[in-house]
Design a binder for these strands. Structure first.
Lengths: 230, 230
DNA sequence: CTATTATTCAATAATTCAATTGAATAATAG
DNA sequence: CTATTATTCAATTGAATTATTGAATAATAG
């Protein structure tokens, strides 16, 4: 049996962590969970997966210990068990970007000249926001905004951006952010705003990374919004 | 199509990185590659996998861009494409250790085995060798072996160890030695043997010290050394 | 040229995984 | 208690992975 066997057992165990992150849907779920705890239904709505399927993926992740759950009333709230997961995901994204030609191409193809829209560093945004010389725009859905957002950020989900342009300043820079480096919401928001003549930039990465960096986070009291079935 | 589609495509791409690290054998291969470039055969010997199987796992990793290969003569030398991989693996190990109860247990077992790597004193080896309850292994090149060695020692240069495992006893302790306290050959031999399930230890110091201590030495007429091409 | 060696490819069987469906469980309200 | 809702379970199906086998390819030596 020996240490050969033992070694393989250890590798198999470590591979269980790998199995969690080898499926696109689970990666997507993890990114949502990185923003805060969510119910199964909320995750299903966000991802477009069936509830049963979402639940099963969550079970897989739960068995690996990467995700934890607490039950409160009818709802089960899932969340990440460890911040190390955020680093793991970042590491994977980095490798994907530099080694899978497709990713870079995909990102560039859809996001219009990525480089033109240079993101503003977190620390810089924090300072400017404190000075009040910038408008921070959170383009995620209201539920996510409610779970936590950059202090002072205005929540305008991308879908409503067109209708709410009048609420935004023409003479001040606007910095938009969303879920993270692979989330397109902020890119699209910035593109739309620039088209309309606003001064707009993106925050580097997104909210999960902001939180991870230990920067201040603001929360809103959770309203009684009942999300409907999809 | 839109950004929903795009998002899923990107997640799928990132998941391809995950697929590389979701199998124990690939993790083991990556760890060996992290130490330096290796041929397919060398990796197959180290892991105990068949050559074809090793090759196929390497293909998988190569397609993901995490591993690269260069061909030189008959051999294909594989190596890691990016140091980020080491961080990824570290991250996975960390998560595995803190979230999979089994891993901690296994690692502990593995480490206690490792602690047994203490070298055996010369006098003790001499007695045991005389009793025939131990196999003495000389891992130096044949020329050095021919010049003098521990009585009864078998000469298996480190490079050939993988191929000659079948000549070694599974049920008896093996004691390896090389040139001296600063020579790594015996260390590596012991490590390899233990990985393969053998009971192996190192002799304290090496052959020069053995001779210096006035212990018996055996000499061989120089045979046709069968070392193959380089 | 043929023979040898290292690696890869192709076909297969065994196993594992993913998504769907519909039923089961658990908490709550009336 | 029954009805409702959120979640999980269990069974099924089709797809993807893995390991094995033996053949094919490529580099080299004679």
């Amino acid at each position: 049996m020996s240490s050969q066997n033992l070694k393989q057992q250890i590798y198999s165990q470590v591979a269980r962590i790998g199995k969690v992150v080898c499926h696109g849907h689970r990666l997507e779920l993890l990114e949502y969970l990185a923003q805060g705890e969510r119910t199964v239904e909320a995750l299903a709505n966000l991802t477009g997966l069936s509830v049963a399927n979402t639940s099963q993926h969550l079970q897989v992740m739960r068995q690996s210990g990467l995700v934890k759950a607490r039950k409160n009333g009818l709802y089960v709230y899932y969340s990440l068990a460890d911040d190390e997961i955020v680093r793991l995901l970042a590491s994977m994204r980095k490798l994907a970007e530099s080694h899978l030609a497709d990713v870079d191409r995909l990102v560039r193809a859809y996001l219009t000249v990525k480089d033109e829209l240079e993101p503003i560093p977190r620390q810089e945004l924090l300072e400017r926001a404190r000075q009040g010389i910038v408008t921070v725009l959170d383009v995620r859905p209201p539920e996510e905004y409610a779970c936590g957002h950059v202090p002072g950020a205005v929540n305008v989900p991308l879908k409503e951006l067109g209708k709410r342009l009048k609420d935004l300043p023409q003479d001040q820079e606007i910095v938009a952010y969303c879920r993270g480096p692979h989330c397109v919401l902020a890119f699209e928001a910035v593109a739309q705003l620039r088209e309309k003549g606003f001064q707009a930039r993106r925050l580097e990465d997104g909210f999960p990374e902001w939180r991870e960096a230990g920067l201040p986070v603001e929360k809103t009291a959770v309203t009684e919004s009942r999300s409907k079935k999809g």
